[in-house]
């Protein structure tokens, strides 16, 4: 493995240092990624897109922070610190949307308003219960991907701190 300098610019996964350009681009790209994710989420009812894809895109934005700026910088985002809670909340939300129809006497996963019913539009977005379900999926995917990556990053950086500079602690002999 190539020698590295450990500093603010070190990536979370021990891949070496990053240049100023990468860091700046990573910072700038965070917001647009989130906007793109929300667009994918909202458009999912008339065009390709859904909560899953949106979650993946949004988590890619956060992953970029990890890779370019390192764990400490990435953890300054509150969503990164509380990713597991987000994932749990997303799953609960989706499950509730799926099971609440049971209380109303309909089968699981029934969506409201029923086909043909009156729908409120917000631009092109139809306000129907599947949107809530997809928001839950979005949170679940985002939370679990970010949470997993954060856990990896934390373990690796703890190991590196333990091993001290100069030894990545990750090398192995072939």
């Amino acid at each position: 493995m190539s020698p590295r300098t450990k500093g603010k610019g070190a990536s979370s996964f021990g891949i070496g240092t990053t240049s100023v350009l990468t860091e700046t681009v990573a910072r700038v790209l965070l917001l647009p990624t989130v906007v793109a994710a929300v667009a994918i989420l909202v458009k999912g009812y008339a065009q390709p897109g859904d909560g899953f894809a949106a979650g993946v895109v949004a988590s890619l934005g956060v992953m970029l922070q990890h890779l370019a700026l390192g764990r400490r910088e990435a953890e300054r985002l509150a969503v990164v610190r509380h990713a597991p809670i987000l994932a749990g909340a997303g799953l609960v939300l989706s499950l509730l949307v799926a099971t609440v129809p049971l209380l109303l006497g309909d089968p699981v996963l029934t969506h409201y308003p029923r086909p043909g019913g009156h729908v409120i539009y917000l631009g092109t977005l139809e306000l129907i219960t599947p949107v809530l379900f997809d928001v839950g999926i979005f949170l679940l995917v985002f939370g679990s991907v970010v949470g997993t990556m954060n856990a990896f990053a934390r373990t690796i950086s703890e190991e590196q701190e333990y091993a001290g500079p100069g030894d990545s602690g990750l090398e192995y002999e072939e």
Binding site: F52, S144, T148, A151, F152, T155, E159, Y172
Partner: peptide, 29 residues
Amino acid sequence: LTALVIGSSTAALLLALVYRLYVSHRSID
């Protein structure tokens, strides 16, 4: 798509397991 999601989560799990094995055995042979 469903199968891919399942595949990606198990991939994360397997990598975590290998990392854990590496930590305790200092080898992934």
